[in-house]
């Protein structure tokens, strides 16, 4: 059986700089996969290639046996890949529940005419979308903050709100870009629990993270990048023992 997501020989250059070079890896359905590496290794670029924000120069990306490397971002979301951003990107002036409803957008269909005439099916659709948005807020623990403007939420809450927005799109795969960034220890602990609960819903997770304790505990498969190239891949235990990974993170010993 083929993997849920297959990244094959993907390369992306910006001018003279090759940010991602010939990277290949799989994400199996139902797993939690971590993408790690030093700063500037090409992790976020890889994410942006998968989500269609960038277009690969070479290589293919397949999701559920379907090529997605030429699709536009919103189509990829519709196909079942939702994401969060490294620097939280919420709709600041809108309430938490409206932010989550953005995720429902691709699963609902009423347009301008429906809005003007308000047929019963549109009223029902809106009610169902709102109910689902509230459910997702409750799922990430923000039920009590539904009416708060996104900009007024604490940083850790903003990160969780982004996850709720991604989940509202009914994804098969969620891509989290540094979900623990800026979180304190207790929030990180809660995040690990949340990742477990997302997985329990049958949603596959691919994440970038610098917090190694989180990566080692939450992920069962880890891909390591350095200078845009994959240098290692394997279970947390194997990665921790891999000399190339240790070298990448700590540098070589002076001889």
């Amino acid at each position: 059986m083929s993997a849920l997501l297959e990244v094959r020989g993907v390369t992306k250059s910006f001018g003279g700089l090759t940010a991602v070079s010939d990277v290949t890896f799989d994400v199996q359905a139902g797993s939690v996969v971590g993408l790690i590496g030093p700063n500037g290794a090409g992790k976020t670029t890889t994410f942006n290639l998968i989500t269609g924000n960038y277009r690969a120069d070479h290589g293919t990306i397949r999701f559920q046996d379907r090529a997605i490397d030429r699709m536009r971002t919103h189509k990829i979301v519709q196909a079942g890949i939702a994401r969060t951003f490294q620097n939280v990107r919420l709709f600041q002036q809108l309430s938490a529940v409206e932010n989550v409803l953005a995720g429902r957008h691709c699963r609902t269909r009423s347009g301008a005419l429906g809005a003007l005439l308000r047929p019963p099916w549109q009223v029902r659709e809106e009610r169902e979308a709102a109910a689902r948005a509230v459910d997702e807020l409750a799922f990430v623990g923000l039920r009590g903050r539904a009416m708060e403007l996104a900009k007024n939420l604490a940083y850790g809450d903003q990160r969780r709100l982004e996850i709720a927005r991604a989940l509202a799109a009914d994804p098969r795969l969620v891509i989290l870009d540094e979900p623990a960034g800026g979180m304190n220890e207790q929030e990180t602990e809660e995040l690990i629990g949340l990742i477990g609960r997302i997985r329990a819903r049958g949603i596959t997770i691919l994440l970038i993270e610098h917090d190694m304790s989180l990566v080692m505990r939450a992920c069962e498969h880890i891909v390591v990048l350095e200078y845009g190239q994959k240098i290692a891949e394997g279970s947390p235990a194997a990665i921790q023992a891999n000399p190339r990974v240790i070298e990448a993170y700590l540098g070589t010993e002076e001889v």
Partner: peptide, 11 residues
Amino acid sequence: EDPVAAEGSGV
């Protein structure tokens, strides 16, 4: 509010 986040949310 944020065109990139909008597209990334499926709009």
